[in-house]
Amino acid sequence: MQIPAAFEYARAESLDHALQLLAEHGEEARVIAGGHSLLPMMKLRLANPEWLIDINDLADLDYITEEGDTLRIGALTRHVSLLESDAVAGLFPLVRDAEKTIADPLVRNRGTIGGSLCQADPAEDLSTVCHVLRTELVIRGPNGERTVPMRELHRGPYETSVEQNEILTEIRWPIRPRSSSAYTKVERRVGDWATTAAGACLTMGDAGQIEDVVIGLTAVGLDGGTATRAEDAIRGQQPGEELYAEAGRLAAEDCNPVGDQRGTEAYKRHLADELTQRVLRKAVERVNSTAAARS
């Protein structure tokens, strides 16, 4: 069996303690939460940290709280909690859509949202979800707290703006009325990384038009994580098949997929189109059915 190279281990007792340990051990220290991204990399010896700072005891980073027009998610919240939360599913149904497809139930029992986002894997589903939800992220460091928008979190594949001496602590999803969302993914097999996936969140206006929309795509090299030309093209328009088709076409044009074992470039581009249409259709249906239920 593959095993990691030797390292030192420290268990943080509080967030401040974790930050202190990070400061103390410098560049070669890494935070470990669920460990389902980091440990496999360490076994392959692609990551060789000298120190692991275990933050699993920081129960105060594991929460889902609705506060005003924001849903606040602690960074240590496990995938399983996001999947099973009715509060999350009610406000942001795309989260449950996505979580159902992330890895498998055992991995979801351990993996955390913070870990997923900080891994910055281009094929990671929650990153798209967070782009689509216009997420704000709270990062704590030695000099206190700062917030960054999702588009500034990832600097590139496997690279984030969370500095070595900082920890991502909270994920904030703005709650908007008359809104809904959807996420869908094509994978070769259950538990596989996305061949391509799409997510959309939209807000409907009084006149039944799409007042606002964000469209995100996973694993197809979309700049900035969102399909802005597609969004612009449908914002303010009445929903319908032609509109979805137009959005799909533009989203497909704007992505830069790379052919690999999961699929050809042409196929992934096709999926960008097809799945964009599907999530828009689904999200509109969801807004309408919620509105119908309320009336």
């Binding site: 470990i32 460990g35 389902h36 991995v107 029992n109 351990r110």
Partner: peptide, 9 residues
């Protein structure tokens, strides 16, 4: 809770 013991230290 079921976990994968190859990915837990």
């Amino acid at each position: 809770v079921p976990v994968k013991s190859c990915t837990v230290l």
